[in-house]
Design a protein around this nucleic acid. Structure first.
Length: 591
RNA sequence: GCCCUUCUAGCUCAGUGGUCGAGCGACGGUUUUGUAAACCGCUGAUCAGAGUUCGAUUCUCUGGAAGGGCUCCA
């Protein structure tokens, strides 16, 4: 048996354990609050949940000890799970006061599924099965984690239920390990680190989802911007600037308006015009392209921009720098002959791999690709042109296959104007998020009547490739903060060196050295505070500054600097020249 | 947007129906230091508004903001 299968079996057993624990949770809840209506309780990625309708009763985390105690009490009597097949009438009768279960029963019997009840101890639930064999022995190491609101069947139109999350492991070690890993993840949370390291802040008066970058945060952003702009220029992109504000008509022409209306800010009426903060850059670049005729010799035209955009995200969706209402996308639109599209997409993926490599992320491990496809039957969601969709999806698939990129396919995730490749990055909590995307667009050229002059003098229609190279800079910063746990590599660190004069008489020398380092492009700070050296070392270490340079009597006399790293390594005294070349090496190797 | 929780000083956190307390920080001073916290002093806050009350930071309501969730189907 290979390892993969083995892993699957272990996962299945774990899921059974977790689902069984959901039963146990429900049993305890029903004992404590008998009027509760139970709904569903599946195993999930890291545990399980059960959704309840508690009626008028409020149940929160403070009730956990009580529930957990009841669970422990009940589990002793659970010797197994007894399966019983029932008719629809019997099932309905059993759950006569529970409209949720009745809805499920109706649905399952309509689908022709067998209806089964599972009993353990005195608790019986509608369930299709998948349990552990000896609950009384196996269900020991569980923990209730949180309470959350969740809509019945996931729809906003339905009633909000109370969801209790929990987890369970076969061993005490497994549970402890999981909980301590959760704690670790919390420490790396970019919102927490952003505050501790002084990178960004919010203001109630400015508004939700609108972060301000401090000098340090702005430094990281500036470095990222310079990095990506330089790299894009090397790769044949032309950087442009277009307005972040435009007439609504522009988005009506592009067709974005009906699809994005919900997330756009409402229009502003000025003079005779309706203006809107742009939620995307594409049509702006198209207008720029259209400002003059283009020969086939100029193609592909690759317009890039650090484009600030505005989207009215639901207030509950906002989160630190990860999800904001104004963001700057490293955006670009490649306008090319259809026959060259594939080559261009391969080049885009190469740029993305280059960027991810620079960020210390490994393909297939830290990130992978998602081929997001359209659905030919959803004519409302997607532009209707089956042949064009088939072709575009095939092109993207070929690119992924030929470059041997790790990818999976996701139906019904495309943009309305074409399929796309999303770069899925795993965040610190282990969840995947879309960081960058590459989209194949055969719709906009039609809508905007984009053309080029072909070798035979005729006007032809190009295709557009939309792509984001480092994505939204805000979100990328959030990723990087968590990825590095705030200890940025030297090239990204907002402060690369803190100079520490031991006593006041060493400050002048330190300042001179700081100027020298600054002139050579190093981001350096001098800690002139009236504090013992130990305190200054501590502060710089807590701020995760990569290098500390200590200057005392000895250094002043010998014209050297004693270097220490944030990891506590003592690199001993060296000349400023040697320190500089050490720094430059660290920056080049993106350490 | 919706459900639950939270909002006390720049930060982390106490506490209370009757003039809110600490540590760190900031500031002033003393000290002039050799690889993760010197000493003394001082400054500084109840998210906003309304209501109940003799009196509200505490209770109620409205608003703002933050956090956990709202995909993982009996």
């Amino acid at each position: 048996m290979n390892g993969f299968l083995l892993k699957n079996m272990e996962q299945e057993q774990l899921d059974h354990l977790r689902h069984s624990c959901a039963h146990l949770l429900a049993a305890a809840v029903m004992e404590l609050w008998p009027n509760t209506k139970r709904t569903i309780g599946p195993a999930i990625e890291n545990g399980f949940y059960y959704d309840f309708d508690f009626g008028d009763v409020k149940v929160s985390e403070v009730d956990f000890p009580k529930i957990e105690a009841k669970m422990l009490e009940l589990v002793g009597t659970w010797k197994g799970f007894e399966r019983k097949e029932v008719t629809k009438a019997e099932a309905i009768k059993f759950f006569k006061d529970n409209e949720y279960k009745k809805e499920l029963i109706e649905e399952f019997s309509k689908e022709g599924q067998k209806l089964t009840l599972f009993t353990s101890g005195t608790y019986t639930d509608l369930c299709r099965g998948g349990h552990c064999t000896h609950p009384d022995k196996e269900l020991k190491f569980f923990d209730l984690l949180s309470v959350a609101g969740a809509y019945w069947r996931g729809s906003e139109k339905n009633k909000m239920l109370t969801r209790i999350y929990g987890t369970v492991f076969p061993t005490r070690e497994g549970l402890d390990d999981y909980l301590s890993r959760q704690e670790e993840a919390k420490k790396r949370d970019h919102r927490k680190l952003g505050k501790e390291l002084g990178l960004f802040v919010f203001s109630d008066l400015i508004g939700a989802g609108l972060p301000m970058l401090t000098p340090k945060g702005a430094t990281i952003r500036r470095i990222l911007e310079r990095f990506i702009v330089d790299e894009e220029l090397k790769r044949g992109y032309q950087h442009v600037v277009t307005p972040p504000l435009a007439k609504v008509d522009l988005y009506r022409t592009s067709g974005h308006y009906p699809y994005y209306k919900e997330t756009m800010y409402p229009p502003m009426n000025v003079d005779e015009d309706e203006l809107i903060l742009r939620p995307m850059t594409c049509p702006h670049h198209f207008m720029l392209y259209k400002s003059s005729p283009h020969s086939w010799r100029e193609l592909p035209v690759r317009f890039a921009e650090l484009a600030t955009q505005f989207r009215y995200e639901k207030s509950g969706e906002l989160s630190g720098l990860m999800r904001v209402r104004m963001f700057t996308l490293a955006d670009a639109h490649i306008i090319t002959q259809p026959e060259n599209a594939k080559k261009e997409i391969i080049a885009v993926l190469d740029l993305i791999d280059f960027v991810n490599h620079r960020f210390g992320m490994i393909k297939g491990e830290d990130y992978r690709y998602r081929l997001s496809l359209g659905d030919r039957t959803e004519t409302k969601k997607y532009f209707k042109d089956d042949a064009a969709w088939d072709n575009a999806e095939q092109v993207l698939r070929e690119v992924l296959e030929e470059t041997e990129a790790p990818f999976y396919e996701a139906p019904n995730e495309a943009a309305f104007y074409g399929p796309k490749i999303d770069v899925q990055i795993k965040n610190i909590a282990g969840h995947e998020e879309t960081a960058f995307t590459v989209q194949y667009d055969f719709v906009m050229p039609k809508r905007f009547d984009l053309t080029y002059v072909a070798p035979d003098g005729s006007l032809k229609q190009p295709v557009v490739i939309h792509r984001a190279s480092i994505g939204a800079i805000e979100r990328t910063m959030a990723f990087l903060i968590e990825h590095y746990a705030g200890a940025f590599p030297v090239w990204l660190a907002p402060v690369q060196v803190t100079l520490i004069p031991i006593a006041e008489r060493h400050v002048a020398t330190a300042q001179k050295m700081a100027t020298e380092l600054k002139n050579r492009g190093i981001r350096v700070e001098t800690d002139e505070k009236n504090e013992p050296m130990g305190a200054k070392i501590r502060n710089a270490t807590l701020q995760k500054v990569p290098f500390m340079g200590i200057i005392g009597d000895k250094e002043v006399a010998e014209g050297v600097i004693s270097v220490r790293t944030r990891k506590g390594e003592d690199l001993k005294a060296m000349s400023l020249e040697n320190f500089l070349s050490l720094l430059q090496k660290a920056i080049e190797h993106t350490l």
